[in-house]
Each structure stands twice: as structure tokens, then as C-alpha cells.
């Protein structure tokens, strides 16, 4: 195994984060904190509790998940798209490094950044909202699983994109709406029965629900289903990446 190669890619990607601290870390932390200020402290104090949890605390898992999905996708897609855009991808393609090792480097770095951000946002939100974490290990596990899964998804987008617009279109047009409609700001059980059933086709529901369970022990769908759906999506992404490297799709002519 080319561990030096994996480390080189990982360090290169992480170095980009430290070089652009304001954009990579401060910006998502500040923008997510604004949600806590507005929906948690200001409006949240006038809203009723959901499942016995204050509204400010209820939305924390969903907001962390919203940031986690967007950052995982954006970090991983940018990480692989930029070498394609600048032409430096030639070096990765000509190196004695396997597809698995390439993915470990890029996706590992993207997921690491997202996890660090998720934990930072959780710590920051504590300044505005009081919350508990009932199952801390499960919380970290969900955080890591989601970060890895959506970094894999981001990697696919980065390979597929042949312009900056395409790089943005899936996070903006699909992921963000799905997250907003996936129970981030409300419990799925609050919807009319028809829309509750429709919502179950939204994969983000399972992520938010599972993550919320790790905080408060309550969930919209069964924990096992949440975990199963997340792992299934991860396997689908991994399979697609395998196909990309096998065929050389948009990487190797």
C-alpha cells in the first residue's frame, strides 16, 4: 500500500483548509451560529416544545447535519475538481497509487474537515442553546459516517462536474432543499399523513432522525432504518466511485 501517497494527498488537502481558515472554518461556523441565534434564542423561546425538547435544542442536530452534508460535498468535490481544472490531476493519475488510496486521501481529508467543523459548531451552539447528548459515541459515529458518505458523494460530483456551475448545482438545488424538508426544523410526525409518507422518500430524513436520536433518544424513524439507509447510500457511492476508476470516466481518457 502506498501510505506515503495517501498521506501526501491528505496533508495537501488539509493544508488548503488551514490556508483558508476564514472561508473553510469561520464562515460555516458563523453562518450556522446565526441559525441558533435566530431560531434557537430569538424565535425558539416563543415556540412550543417538540417531543419534550425545546425548539432551540431540537433543531441543533438538523442544523449540524445541514452543515455537515454541504461541507462534506463541497470539500470533496472541490478537492478532486480543482486538480482536474488546473491540470495537476496528471500527477495523481501517473503516480503508483491505487484508486482506493486516492479516495482515502481526498475523501479522508474532506470528511476530517467536516467532522472538525461539526464539532466546532456543536461547541459554538452551546453558547446560545442548552442541549444534552444522550449517546455521545453514537453521535460521533453518526457524524463520521455521514461525513464519509457525503464526502464520497462529493467526490463523485467533483469527477462528474466539468464546470464550477455543476460543482454547485447538486448541493444548492438538491441537497439543501432535501435537508430543509428532511425534518431539520420540524418533526416529520408533525406533517399530515400524506406528506409524512412522501417525506420518507427523502434520504436526509434518516440522517437527521438518527443523529437527533443520539442527542435526545427520540427519532422520527427507527434507529436501525436510519443506520441502514446511511450505510446503503455509502455503499452506492463507493460502488459508483469504483465504476469511475474502472472506466476512467472523466478522469482517464
Amino acid at each position: 500500500m502506498n501510505l506515503h501517497g495517501v498521506k501526501a494527498i491528505y496533508r495537501f488537502e488539509m493544508a488548503r483548509t488551514w490556508r483558508t481558515l476564514l472561508q473553510s472554518i469561520a464562515s460555516p461556523v458563523i453562518s450556522t451560529s446565526l441559525y441558533f441565534v435566530v431560531f434557537g434564542s430569538a424565535i425558539g423561546s416563543r415556540m412550543v416544545e417538540i417531543d419534550g425538547i425545546s425548539y432551540g435544542a431540537f433543531i441543533i442536530p438538523g442544523l449540524v447535519m445541514l452543515m455537515l452534508l454541504n461541507e462534506s460535498i463541497s470539500n470533496a468535490s472541490f478537492g478532486i475538481y480543482m486538480p482536474k481544472f488546473t491540470g495537476t490531476i496528471y500527477e495523481v493519475l501517473s503516480a503508483p497509487i491505487s484508486p482506493l488510496e486516492i479516495v482515502l486521501g481526498y475523501v479522508g481529508a474532506a470528511a476530517s474537515k467536516s467532522i472538525i467543523l461539526g464539532l466546532l459548531i456543536l461547541a459554538t451552539s452551546r453558547l446560545f442553546v442548552d442541549y444534552q447528548i444522550a449517546h455521545p459515541f453514537a453521535m460521533v459515529g453518526f457524524l463520521a459516517l455521514t461525513a464519509v458518505t457525503f464526502s464520497l458523494f462529493g467526490f463523485i460530483i467533483g469527477v462528474w462536474a466539468d464546470g464550477f456551475e455543476k460543482l454547485q448545482i447538486i448541493p444548492m438545488m438538491i441537497v439543501t432543499p432535501l435537508t430543509f424538508l428532511g425534518g431539520t426544523f420540524y418533526s416529520v410526525s408533525m406533517l399530515p399523513p400524506f406528506w409524512e409518507t412522501v417525506t420518507l422518500f427523502n434520504p436526509v430524513v434518516y440522517l437527521v432522525s438518527g443523529f437527533r436520536w443520539s442527542f435526545y433518544g427520540v427519532a422520527d424513524v427507527h434507529l436501525g432504518v436510519s443506520l441502514g439507509m446511511t450505510v446503503l447510500f455509502m455503499l452506492v457511492c463507493a460502488g459508483l466511485i469504483g465504476w469511475i476508476f474502472k472506466t476512467g470516466y472523466r478522469l482517464r481518457d
Partner: peptide, 19 residues
């Protein structure tokens, strides 16, 4: 080239990438 990298960092990266 990686425009924002330093010369030494990019050469060190290449060495690592090739194992």
C-alpha cells in the same frame, strides 16, 4: 501547478505521492 503552494511543499508532495 498548484498556484498557492510553495515550491518546496509541492516538490515534497510529489515525492510522497510516488510512495
Amino acid at each position: 501547478t498548484d498556484a498557492f503552494e510553495t515550491v518546496q511543499a509541492t516538490v515534497t508532495f510529489s515525492r510522497g505521492l510516488f510512495g
